[in-house]
Simulated assay, not measured.
Amino acid sequence: MKLIVGLGNPGDEYIDTRHNIGFQVIDQIAKTNNIKINQNKFDSLIYVNEDFILMKPMTFMNLSGEAVKKVMDFYKISHKNILVVCDELDIKVGQAKIKLSTSSGGHNGIKSIIENLNTSEFYRLKIGIGRPKTKSESISKYVLNKFDEKQKNIIQKVIDQATDAIMSYIYNDINYVINNFNKKG
């Protein structure tokens, strides 16, 4: 069984913000596959079937690992079968990549998952949100802002590609998915 975790923050004020791109991908997977993510368990909204779990932690970003650990333990999922979808400052808007990383890269949601699972060996689908255009804008403010109109169209294409990649990951070897998805840029 595969666990697909979309990172974000609960609450209407965070809908469509850069930091909630993980939630947006999970929502797109649900929409594309006519799935309802409506089980409220393990401090998360989840959907479970025999092949995969879709998960949106409701613990706020910095505590995401607590919810992931609960789902992982209950369903006895190996860390090697976890794919976390998150925003990435160091990737340009319109780009994304899947990788197995060894650090949080400064992302507090990933840091929380690493701390709670006691391993950094799980896959990340990192979606580029770019960096602020000016040095005066704080990172925390930037990630909690929404994409501009031009970026929304670009991001929707990335979300669609990420959805396809995740559905492929559920039924294929991760290396096959990485090779195909990362080539698209």
Rank of each mutant, 00 (worst) to 15 (best):
L144E: 08
I170V: 15
D16M: 03
D16L: 04
G6D: 04
I127L: 07
Q28F: 09
A165G: 03
L83A: 01
R131H: 11
I174P: 00
T102G: 14
K152Y: 10
H19P: 01
I37G: 01
N118F: 09
K97I: 05
I114G: 02
E13D: 09
K92H: 09
S136T: 15
A30Q: 12
S140Y: 11
V48I: 15
T102A: 06
V71I: 15
K31M: 13
S101C: 04
T102Y: 06
H107E: 07
N180A: 01
Q151V: 08
I110T: 09
I21T: 03
M1F: 09
Q161R: 11
K150A: 14
I178Q: 06
N153Y: 15
K69Q: 11
I129W: 10
K36A: 13
P10V: 07
F52K: 10
L83C: 07
K150L: 14
N175H: 11
K157L: 12
T59K: 09
V93Q: 06
S138P: 04
G8V: 06
I98V: 03
G11Q: 10
T59E: 10
D43F: 12
A162K: 03
N81Q: 14
M55L: 13
K133R: 10
N40G: 00
R18G: 02
V84C: 02
I46E: 02
N9L: 04
I21P: 00
F181K: 01
I29V: 14
F23I: 07
I37L: 10
D16C: 01
V5K: 01
N145T: 15
F181Q: 01
C86R: 03
G65L: 04
N20T: 11
G8Q: 05
G105F: 08
P57D: 07
N49F: 08
T163R: 03
D164M: 01
I113Q: 03
N172P: 00
D173L: 03
A165D: 03
K92M: 08
F23Q: 03
M55R: 02
K76F: 13
V143I: 15
I15G: 00
G6R: 02
K31F: 14
L3G: 00
G11S: 08
I53T: 05
K152D: 12
P10N: 08
N34F: 11
E121Q: 15
A96I: 05
L45T: 01
S120Y: 07
P132Y: 08
